[in-house]
Amino acid sequence: MTEPAYLVTPQGRRIAHHQTPGRGPGVVFLGGFNSDMQGSKALFLQAWAEAQGRAFLRFDYSGHGQSSGDFRDGAIGDWLQDAEAALALTEERQVLVGSSMGGWIALLLARRHPERIAGLVGIAAAPDFTEDSMWAGFSEAQKAELAQGQVALPSDYGAPYIITRRLIEEGRRHLVLRQPLSLPFPVRLLQGSADTDVPPAVALRLFDHAQGPDIRLTLVKGADHRFSTPDCLGAIAAALAEVLAAAPQPLR
Rank of each mutant, 00 (worst) to 15 (best):
A47L: 11
H64M: 13
A126W: 00
V198S: 01
D73I: 02
V176S: 04
L146G: 01
V187C: 06
S139R: 10
R72Y: 08
A246T: 12
P248S: 13
D224S: 12
H18Y: 09
G65C: 11
T9V: 10
A194F: 03
A49K: 00
D60R: 05
P213D: 09
T229G: 11
C232W: 02
L108N: 04
R112K: 14
R205T: 12
E131Y: 10
W135L: 15
F129Y: 13
R165H: 12
F29Q: 02
H18R: 13
G31R: 01
T130W: 09
Q11D: 14
S100C: 12
A118E: 00
D70R: 15
D197N: 14
A126E: 01
A147M: 10
Q211G: 06
A47Y: 05
I15A: 09
Q46T: 12
A55L: 03
H113Q: 14
V27C: 00
H64S: 15
P250D: 10
R188E: 04
A55M: 05
F227M: 07
G222R: 11
E242M: 06
T2C: 10
V198I: 14
R165Q: 14
F138G: 01
P114M: 07
G63R: 07
Q46C: 12
V176G: 01
Q150D: 12
S193Y: 04
W48Y: 14
P250F: 07
G122K: 00
E3A: 15
Q94A: 06
G119S: 05
Q249G: 14
Q191I: 05
A159N: 09
V95W: 03
I163Q: 00
V202C: 09
A106I: 01
L96H: 01
L7C: 13
L146V: 06
E115P: 10
I162F: 09
P248W: 02
R226P: 07
D60C: 12
R205M: 07
S35I: 04
G119M: 03
G171I: 04
E50W: 05
L244D: 00
S100G: 12
A83H: 02
E50S: 14
F71P: 00
C232F: 03
Q46E: 15
S35W: 03
S67Y: 00
G234Y: 06
E145W: 03
G26F: 01
G32K: 01
W79S: 12
A55G: 13
L217W: 07
P10N: 08
L153S: 13
P127C: 03
A246M: 11
F227V: 05
Q11S: 15
E3S: 15
L108H: 04
K143R: 15
L120C: 11
V121P: 02
P25D: 01
L43W: 06
L96W: 00
R23H: 13
V176D: 00
Q46G: 15
V243R: 02
H17W: 04
L80W: 00
V202H: 01
R54V: 05
S133Y: 06
L96Q: 01
L153G: 10
R166K: 14
A55C: 08
D156V: 13
A47N: 13
P25M: 02
G12I: 10
R13I: 03
L217R: 06
Q150S: 15
Q191R: 07
T9Y: 06
A125I: 06
W135K: 08
T90L: 13
Q94S: 11
F44W: 08
A126I: 03
E242A: 15
R116P: 05
L153Q: 11
G53Y: 03
Q19P: 08
H17M: 05
L109F: 08
Q94I: 05
R112E: 08
R172T: 13
